[in-house]
Simulated assay, not measured.
Amino acid sequence: MAKKRVSIKDIAKALGVSITTVSFIINGKAREQRISDEVSKKVKDYIKEVGYKPSHVAQSLRLGKSKIIVFMAEDISNQFFSSIARFIEEKAYRNGYKIIYCSTDNDVGKAKELISTFKMRNVDGFIITPTPDLEDVIKDLMEEEFPVVLFDRWLPDVDCSHVIVENKKSAFEGTDHLIKEGVKRPAFISLESDQTQMIDRETGFREAIQQSGVKGLELKLKFHNLAESGPYQELFEFFSKNRDIDGVFFATNYLAFEGLQALDSLGRNIPKDVKVVSFDDHYFFGLFKPKITAIEQPLETISEKLMETILNHIEELDKGYVSRKIILPNKLNIREST
């Protein structure tokens, strides 16, 4: 049986004080209302003891909507996230909302701190690319009745709305394309990650090579944020040791950028010696010689679905949270590298 949520009314009744008094203390207005330190301490101690969490619905009704939505990405400077951010900004503005942008750098500590800060500012909702180990924080947000939508990846243990793409299917199609173009020794370059989108891309690669019977290689690299040097050296060494690799599937475009540099340094000709496919298309891939085959995510559609979902949650705030799960198709853009 679900544990009953503690309300302000319950706290007031248990301590023998008025609901108004409890409300003033919770909202930091005790001194302004001349409530004694003794009463304030008694209420705060009890709140901590029973684990009370204020309802966002109640706050919204009391203070009004802030008309602000938080957009929390892994790295806002990354072209994928910045493009979605730009589309979302336009759609939010048309609906009377403003967006606050921030980057987590895939750091759970930073993500928790940012979410805590924005909760106190009574923002209307959160669009989040979740970091590892953020499940409890997302559950808390939902329990406090904040509208939340995840994107790029989802959390299997949390029944939360999300907008994602067909990662496994697209990775299978990209790998299958390499094999059909004659690749006998494909390599999959990815990140050390338990995140759903990376697991799905790895699964798609593995299923394609198992189905074809070729022998594949895999390399998983640590996540690098913008302030750190990229994995060029690790990729250079990997390709140096495995000269029989004749096809590469890069799980993200920034890994492809580093990998293409490494292959060029080794004098490996694309596509004669090595054929290349990357997840996350980028304008750079159309400028590179030869042009790089890549999987394009539907950025504008992702943005539309994110805004549509978060605005629906905000409008239905008093009806309770019902999750929406949206999965969108990608497009394989075949170019000269294959």
Rank of each mutant, 00 (worst) to 15 (best):
E192Q: 08
S193I: 07
S193K: 02
S193N: 02
D194N: 09
D194A: 01
D194E: 12
D194Y: 03
Q195I: 14
Q195L: 15
T196K: 06
Q197V: 03
Q197G: 00
M198S: 04
M198G: 00
M198Y: 09
M198Q: 03
I199W: 01
I199T: 03
I199A: 00
I199G: 00
R201S: 06
E202L: 12
E202C: 06
T203S: 11
T203M: 07
G204Q: 06
E207W: 10
A208N: 11
A208F: 14
A208C: 09
A208D: 09
I209M: 05
I209N: 05
I209S: 07
Q210W: 01
Q210S: 13
G213D: 09
G213T: 15
V214C: 11
V214T: 09
G216W: 08
G216R: 11
G216H: 09
G216Q: 03
L217I: 01
L217S: 09
L217E: 13
L217Y: 15
E218D: 02
E218H: 01
L219R: 06
L219C: 06
L219Q: 04
L219N: 02
K220P: 01
K220Y: 05
L221Y: 06
L221C: 05
L221D: 03
K222G: 02
K222H: 07
K222M: 00
H224K: 10
N225E: 00
L226Y: 12
L226V: 13
L226N: 02
L226M: 03
A227I: 04
A227C: 00
E228T: 09
E228R: 08
E228L: 05
E228W: 07
S229H: 10
G230Q: 03
P231G: 01
Y232D: 11
Q233D: 15
Q233G: 01
E234W: 05
E234P: 11
E234S: 14
E234A: 04
E234G: 10
F236C: 05
F236M: 12
E237S: 14
F238L: 12
F238D: 11
F239T: 13
F239Y: 15
F239P: 13
S240A: 12
S240W: 12
S240R: 15
K241V: 06
K241H: 11
K241S: 14
N242G: 08
N242E: 13
R243A: 14
D244A: 02
D244F: 05
D244Q: 10
I245C: 13
I245S: 11
I245W: 10
I245A: 10
D246Q: 09
G247N: 09
G247R: 11
F249T: 05
F249M: 14
F249W: 12
A251M: 04
A251V: 01
T252F: 02
N253G: 02
N253P: 01
N253W: 04
N253Q: 08
Y254H: 09
L255S: 03
A256I: 08
F257K: 02
E258V: 00
E258Q: 13
G259N: 03
G259L: 08
Q261E: 06
A262M: 07
A262V: 13
L263R: 13
D264Q: 12
S265K: 15
S265R: 15
L266C: 13
L266G: 12
G267W: 06
G267Y: 10
R268M: 13
R268Q: 04
